[in-house]
């Protein structure tokens, strides 16, 4: 038996928003520790890794490990039926071929349940080696979304260049060229507005704009985003999810032919 209760179901709505542009379907692996998802996009260029710890939920029970293959368009239809303040309970029997979503209004006067068929997915798990990154940039997630959106008007690729002075995002194309430089913030009142850089070595890498823009669909999950870069390895874009865990996106770089 699997059962997870979430008082504010808006978190799950935001998670779904953050993955559905990259993935059509995904397997949610449920265990005693929580819910995990790891899936590559169809083109095998980016990977989504989601971790929601069991202790973040208001109630969590998972007697046996359970892998739920879910069509994300179907799940989106169901989650649209929930109010942001509804209390969500997800339930599944062991070895079930369906999962139930129950939404209760705060005053408990309205209770809805939706039963969704699970699908069988061929799981392809990737081993992600521990990496010491040359540059770790923390910045406001809204600012990162804005930069990705603005630069995608100029070219298909964004060059991210990090030194100890700051980080530069550049794009170039038919219109011309664009450069956005962010310096480390000296003093900020709010931690979430800070730009901080931990640098071992300067790094410059090129990435496809389209994927960066898809990652920014997670902006609502966290006020800050963390970018981890090393030469010739995938970029990691991480958004913390409150008391639950995180969503990480890995994106392979573009290299000179």
């Amino acid at each position: 038996m699997f059962e997870a209760r979430l008082v504010q179901c808006s978190m799950l709505k935001k998670v779904l928003e953050a993955i559905k542009e990259l993935l059509n379907e995904a397997t949610f692996d449920c265990s005693d520790a929580g819910i995990q998802l790891q899936a590559m996009d169809n083109s095998h260029v980016s990977l989504v890794s989601l971790n929601l710890r069991s202790d973040g939920f208001d109630k969590y029970r998972c007697d046996r490990n359970l892998s739920m293959g879910i069509n994300l368009a179907s799940m989106t239809k169901i989650m649209k039926c929930a109010g942001n303040d509804d209390v969500l309970t997800i339930k599944a029997q062991d070895n079930a071929d369906n999962v139930m979503f129950m939404f209760e209004s705060q005053n408990q006067e309205k209770v809805s349940d939706y039963d969704m068929k699970l699908i069988n997915l061929d799981q392809e798990h990737l081993g992600i080696p521990e990496t010491d990154y040359s540059c770790i940039i923390k910045m406001p997630s809204g600012e990162f979304a804005r930069i990705c959106r603005d630069l995608s008007q100029f070219g298909e690729s964004v060059v991210i260049s990090c030194t100890k002075e700051g980080v530069k995002f550049s794009a170039a194309g038919d219109v011309g060229a664009a450069n956005i430089k962010l310096a480390q913030t000296a003093n900020v009142d709010k931690e979430e507005e800070a730009v901080t850089i931990e640098m071992q070595e300067p790094v410059t890498l090129t990435f496809a704009c389209r994927y960066l823009n898809s990652f920014t669909k997670a902006t609502a999950l966290s006020p800050q985003v963390q970018l981890s870069m090393s030469a010739d390895v995938p970029l990691v874009v991480e958004y913390k999810i409150g008391d639950f865990g995180h969503i990480r996106y890995y994106l392979a770089p573009k290299i000179e032919e």
């Binding site: 095998h44 260029v45 980016s46 392809e124 990737l126 496809a208 995938p234 392979a252 290299i255 032919e257």
Partner: peptide, 14 residues
């Protein structure tokens, strides 16, 4: 010209 790398080149299938 830039070539898009694939993730499988960096990570292992397990």
């Amino acid at each position: 010209m830039l070539r898009q790398c694939l993730l499988t080149g960096f990570f292992m299938n397990i």
